Simulated assay, not measured.
Amino acid sequence: MAKKVAVIGAGVSGISSIKCCVDEDLEPTCFERSDDIGGLWKFTESSKDGMTRVYKSLVTNVSKEMSCYSDFPFHEDYPNFMNHEKFWDYLQEFAEHFDLLKYIQFKTTVCSITKRPDFLRNWSVGCGHRDRGQAK
């Protein structure tokens, strides 16, 4: 039986954490409050949830060789310094290539994380689903 792991957020760190869990035969569940991956890299015209995100004209100031995942380099035709759309495309390609989307519960906000006294499961994660009420 694989050990269960909670990952909070499906941004750059979250999706790489999911992949690391899968690589180590762990069972990740990622809780993402929005309806898509990318976190701060997912551009939207307005910020309904109060999160700051990339701005429309953003271009990275870190080269593609330094900002890629070690096991998933950028395509050769990607520019050395890319705009936010190209970087988000890369995150989407990474998630799809390693079949990570199936581990993500979208529109799910983590409301609490508490240590359990019984030691059978170390932590309890309380979540609110935007469309379905509360769950644990």
Rank of each mutant, 00 (worst) to 15 (best):
C20H: 12
S34C: 10
L40C: 12
M51W: 05
D49G: 10
I15A: 07
S17T: 11
F31A: 13
R53F: 03
K19R: 15
R53V: 04
W41P: 03
T29E: 05
P28S: 10
I18S: 08
P28F: 01
F43N: 03
C21R: 00
G14H: 05
D35N: 15
V12S: 01
G11K: 00
C30A: 15
D23S: 05
G39S: 10
C20T: 07
T52R: 11
R33D: 15
K42R: 15
I18N: 05
V12N: 04
S13R: 00
A10M: 13
S16I: 03
E27I: 04
T29L: 03
C30E: 07
R33K: 14
V12R: 00
F31K: 13
D35W: 13
F43C: 07
K19Q: 12
E24K: 14
D49Q: 01
D25E: 09
G50Y: 03
S16V: 05
C21H: 04
G38M: 08
K42I: 07
C21T: 08
L40Q: 13
T44I: 05
C30Q: 02
K48M: 07
D25K: 10
E24F: 01
K42C: 14
T44L: 14
L26T: 07
R53L: 03
S16H: 01
D49S: 09
E27N: 14
R53E: 00
R53S: 09
V54Q: 04
E27L: 11
E45S: 11
S16W: 01
D49V: 00
I18P: 05
I18C: 09
R33W: 06
K48N: 13
E24S: 11
T52Y: 06
E24I: 01
C21F: 06
M51N: 12
S13F: 00
I15P: 10
C20Y: 13
R33A: 09
D23I: 02
T52P: 02
S17E: 06
E27T: 10
E24R: 08
E32A: 09
D36L: 02
S47A: 15
G14C: 04
W41S: 09
E24Q: 15
F43Q: 10
S47G: 12
G39Y: 13
E45H: 10
I18V: 14
V12K: 00
R53N: 01
T52D: 01
S17W: 01
S16T: 07
C21G: 08
E24H: 14
C20P: 00
D35Q: 11
M51E: 03
S34V: 04
F31S: 14
V22D: 02
S16R: 08
L40T: 15
E45T: 05
E45D: 14
G14E: 08
T29A: 04
R53Q: 04
G50V: 03
A10T: 09
I18F: 07
D35Y: 11
G39D: 10
D49R: 06
V22C: 03
M51G: 01
K19L: 02
I37R: 14
L26H: 01
